[in-house]
Amino acid sequence: MKTVITYGTFDLFHVGHIRLLKRLSALGDKLIVGISSDEFNALKGKSSFYSYEERAEIVESCRYVDEVFPEHNWQQKRSDIERFNASIFAIGDDWEGKFDELKDLCEVVYLPRTEDISTTEIKQNLSALNGQDLDKIETSLHEVIEIVKTLSIK
């Protein structure tokens, strides 16, 4: 069995995330996703709209993902690859060359990001909205999460 491992924040889950996870899952038999914990995001100077628990639930509901786990620090990748017996470490090409030191453990693959979409851009567009608009969006997103829960997509 060929296991693929990847990492990300997966905030404001969008079609770019889905397309990336689909391509990652096609590289092997099992896709395992490390999701940045809220504490790790804080160390990186990032904040997420959704909590780790919510982001993990969203990503885990994607049919391309077999398992999720928390990423607490940069250094854990090596031990995670060994723990999950991963054959491939894959991540977006905006990280090109940053994880080449893992090549002694497994194949390292950098995949192109989906063009014309990014979480950063979505957040910038959302920041231009007023509070009432944001409340409506948040309510809608929580409704989508509840629908996904009931569908048990796997």
Rank of each mutant, 00 (worst) to 15 (best):
D80Q: 04
G92W: 11
S118F: 10
R63T: 01
F69R: 10
E60W: 07
Q76F: 03
T119C: 12
I88P: 02
S87F: 05
G131H: 15
T6N: 08
I153N: 05
V108T: 12
I117D: 08
S140H: 12
E107H: 15
W74D: 13
L20C: 06
I153C: 04
L151F: 08
E96L: 15
K98F: 02
A56L: 04
N130Y: 11
T150A: 10
E121S: 11
R78G: 00
T119F: 09
H72E: 10
R83K: 14
I122Y: 05
D93L: 04
N85S: 14
I32G: 00
K136Q: 11
W95R: 14
N85D: 12
D94K: 09
Y52M: 10
N85F: 05
T150C: 09
D11H: 06
S51Q: 03
E96D: 12
T139C: 10
R19K: 14
W74N: 07
L111C: 08
Q76H: 02
K123R: 15
P112M: 13
C106I: 14
H17Q: 09
K149M: 02
T120W: 11
A56Q: 10
L31V: 01
I147R: 12
E121K: 13
E146M: 13
K98I: 00
F69K: 06
E138M: 15
V68C: 14
K44A: 05
D104H: 13
F89N: 04
L129E: 08
I117S: 10
V33H: 02
L31W: 00
E82N: 00
P70H: 08
V59M: 00
Y110L: 04
E143H: 11
E146F: 01
D11L: 11
S47T: 15
S127K: 15
I35S: 06
I122S: 07
R55M: 00
N130F: 12
I58R: 07
R113S: 11
R113Y: 12
P70E: 05
A128K: 15
F40E: 01
V68D: 01
I81N: 05
Q76A: 04
D93P: 08
T9S: 09
